[in-house]
Amino acid sequence: MAHDHSHSHVDENQSDKQLAVAVIINVLLTVTQVIGGIFSGSLSLIADALHNLSDAGAIFIALIARKIGNKPADVTHHFGYKRAEILATLFNSTTLIIIGLYLIFEAISSYLNPQPINGWIVVWVAAIALVIDLATAYLTYRAGANHSINIKAAFIHNISDAMASIVVIIAGTLIILYQWYIVDLIATVLISVYVIYHGILLLKQSGKILMQAAPNNIDTHAISHAISNEFNIESVVSIKLWQLDDKENYCELVISTQQTIDLPAVKGFLHDNFNVENCIIETRPIANKSAA
């Protein structure tokens, strides 16, 4: 039976507009930072501009993926297109890791080959970037970061870039006051580790879904025990669980029993107690154990 999945914790039309605005302001910010980096001589500012450009890309990909994911099932995609968002998460988490590694490389290169830097330009441009980063993070959070790992990946892009902007402001201030270039290296490495860590977490989560691994929050032994007790099932032969996306769980259940089982009731029980959206159930008479 088809179910209506239009229920949502966020107004998607409104949040799509918020995401579109976030893309536009991040592109404008990237241009501003590149210009500021060229005039100030700050490589870290240009590196931060690259990070902002990746933010715009991540949000745009998340927006397109959600549009695709909302398409209904058809004759070729029987489960619909919801995994488009998981593919987007996989891509965005991979870019988080690559950007984190690049920023570490860039910080080390800047330290080994120091160049004169205009600290005031760095501070002012980074301050503008921070305001925009926080505004963009707010927009992506409101767009559903708590309810979608696809949007969450874009949100983490924004948070990490806001942290990077803070670091650039601090580094620029210390350059103005003390010419302490080492601070830029240390702070950039710390932020990069943070970015890489969250990128790996999202990569693992999306990878598990695409590999059809069992959901972390569902215990197959608990399901077997619960339905055996509830419906007097003699034997649960096998349970296979997988996720369609980061919200919907599906299962394939094989049971052996000598009595007639109310299969819709079993499905309803699994839905209400274990958040299983739908389950394919096969029943086997115990007398047929020796059958091939």
Rank of each mutant, 00 (worst) to 15 (best):
A2D: 11
A2M: 08
D4S: 09
D4N: 15
D4H: 15
D11Y: 03
N13H: 04
I24S: 09
I24P: 07
I25A: 03
I25N: 12
N26L: 06
L29E: 10
T30P: 07
V31S: 06
I35T: 02
G36E: 02
G37Y: 07
G37W: 09
S40Q: 09
G41M: 04
S44K: 00
L45E: 02
F60D: 02
F60P: 12
F60H: 04
A65P: 04
I68W: 01
Y81D: 03
A84W: 01
I86C: 01
L87W: 04
A88W: 06
T89F: 00
L90S: 14
F91M: 13
I97E: 00
I97C: 09
L101E: 08
F105N: 14
A107W: 08
A107C: 14
I108Y: 14
S110F: 06
I117Q: 13
W124K: 11
L130N: 11
I132H: 07
I132K: 10
T136D: 10
A137N: 12
R142Y: 08
A143K: 02
N146E: 11
N146W: 00
H147E: 15
S148W: 00
S148T: 03
I149A: 00
N150Q: 04
N150M: 00
K152D: 04
A153F: 05
A154G: 02
A154F: 01
I156C: 08
I156F: 09
D161V: 07
D161F: 11
D161C: 10
M163D: 08
A164Q: 12
V168E: 09
V168Q: 06
V168F: 07
A171H: 06
G172S: 05
G172W: 10
Y178H: 12
I182P: 10
D184Q: 05
T188I: 12
S192G: 15
Y197H: 14
H198A: 07
G199M: 00
L203H: 04
K204C: 10
Q205E: 15
Q205S: 13
G207E: 02
K208P: 01
K208A: 13
I209A: 01
L210P: 13
Q212R: 11
A213F: 14
A213R: 14
A214N: 09
A214K: 09
P215H: 03
N217Y: 01
T220P: 11
H221T: 15
H221K: 15
S224L: 01
H225G: 06
S228K: 15
N229F: 06
E230I: 01
F231W: 06
F231Y: 12
N232R: 03
N232H: 11
I233T: 09
Q243H: 04
Q243L: 10
L244D: 03
D245P: 03
D246C: 00
K247F: 03
K247H: 13
C251P: 03
C251H: 00
C251N: 14
L253M: 03
V254C: 03
I255A: 02
S256Y: 08
Q258G: 15
Q258E: 15
T260A: 15
D262V: 06
L263H: 02
G268D: 11
L270F: 02
L270W: 00
H271L: 06
N275F: 01
N278E: 11
I280D: 03
I280M: 12
I281Y: 04
I281N: 04
R284A: 13
A292V: 13
A292F: 14
